[in-house]
């Protein structure tokens, strides 16, 4: 298991490096002169040139890329925002908790609401709850998030005056972004839960459990749900990745000063350090989260855990055999250890 985690962590590093190279390349070739944005139209050509040199934009692409990769990954320095003159990491760390809280609250709401609704719909297949879920899911999955958000603002903020329509002044500010950002995922997860539970609802072990006289709730939550959890966990895991990068629209609509707004503002102002920094942090976060999701599979389903262990063991044996084989000089760290 440890070997599997190590392997995944190494892959994570590759993913983050790849993301960094890709975003750097895209931003390098995208139209828009950051120096003109920074200095405006009144600066002289000499001032433009000096600024370009100061930012390192006058150097060849590969040199710029190397400088960025070196600073970001060997010195853990994401640089300073060109438009704000503050360190990118500090900017991220200031906003990340807000965005993360928004995302976590959305996931909690989604999970707490969607799973019971999905289970309820499945065990009442073709009943009122089931049909209600199907209709509601169809509506809310189709409705664009920004539109729903505006409707909720009009109702709860403008008409009723219960909730603020923007900002982060109080805990109430989180309610509308969380609810409007969760509606589609509640419906999607509820449908997924329904489908997963339907897969196991007629299984023999469920019939056996019922025939043994178990209380229905214990049958559902003790036998049905654990066996239906794998796809649900995948979906929740995917939602976690949206915690950091997927709330741009919500942040824009609710003027919520999180990472998404930081990033979108940086894109429009061609603030390369912020864009690169955000993408690198998001990529790392997403890769690590997906690792946790994969590990969670193992805890939920012992068969998957056994697969992790056996595949790691097999690879270990293969490596051992390779290194025992006489042949050309090949001394890796593992080889030395096994010898």
């Amino acid at each position: 298991m440890g070997r599997y985690i190590l392997h995944r962590l190494l892959l994570t590093i590759l993913v983050v490096l790849g993301a960094a190279v890709v975003i750097f390349t895209i931003m390098h070739f995208v139209p828009g002169d950051p120096v003109e944005i920074l200095l405006g139209n009144d600066a002289t050509l000499e001032q433009y040139a000096a600024k370009r040199s100061e930012l390192g934009l006058d150097k060849p692409f590969l040199i710029q890329l190397w400088n960025f990769m070196y600073k970001a990954f060997l010195r853990l320095d994401l640089g300073a925002s060109w438009t704000r003159s503050t360190p990118v990491l500090a900017g991220m760390l200031e906003r990340l908790p807000r965005t993360f809280l928004l995302g976590i609250l959305s996931i909690i709401l989604t999970t707490v609401v969607a799973i019971p609704i999905g289970v309820n719909a499945a065990i009442h297949q073709n009943g009122l709850q089931d049909r209600g879920l199907i209709v509601a899911a169809m509506v809310f999955i189709s409705v664009p998030e920004f539109w729903l958000a505006l409707l909720l603002i009009i109702l709860f903020s403008l008409k009723l005056g219960w909730l603020p329509s923007f900002g982060i002044e109080s805990w109430k500010s989180y309610i509308l972004p969380v609810v409007s950002g969760s509606m589609a995922s509640i419906c999607t997860l509820a449908r997924q839960t329904r489908a997963s539970v339907l897969d196991v609802v007629h299984a023999d072990y469920i019939t056996t459990a019922r025939s043994k006289g178990m209380v229905e709730r214990d049958v559902i939550y003790g036998h049905m749900l654990p066996n239906a959890l794998i796809p649900i966990i995948t979906m929740i895991g995917m939602s976690f990745t949206a915690c950091v990068g997927g709330t741009v629209v919500m942040e824009q609509i609710f003027s919520f000063p999180g990472v998404g707004l930081y990033l979108s503002d940086a894109i429009s102002r061609r603030d390369y350090p912020v864009i690169r920094g955000c993408v690198v942090v998001m990529a790392a976060f997403t890769a690590i989260l997906m690792l946790f999701v994969d590990l969670a599979y193992g805890y939920v389903d012992p068969r998957i855990k056994a697969q992790y262990i056996s595949s790691s063991a097999k690879k270990g044996k293969v490596n051992e055999k390779r290194h025992r084989r006489p042949g050309p000089k090949h001394h890796s760290g593992h080889g030395n250890e096994s010898q």
Binding site: V139, V143, L148, L150, L151, L152, I154, L155, L158, K159
Partner: peptide, 13 residues
């Protein structure tokens, strides 16, 4: 509740 939100929003719009 969800329906009401949608309808009220539409009406205002």
């Amino acid at each position: 509740l969800l329906g009401a939100a949608v309808i009220s929003g539409c009406a205002t719009k």
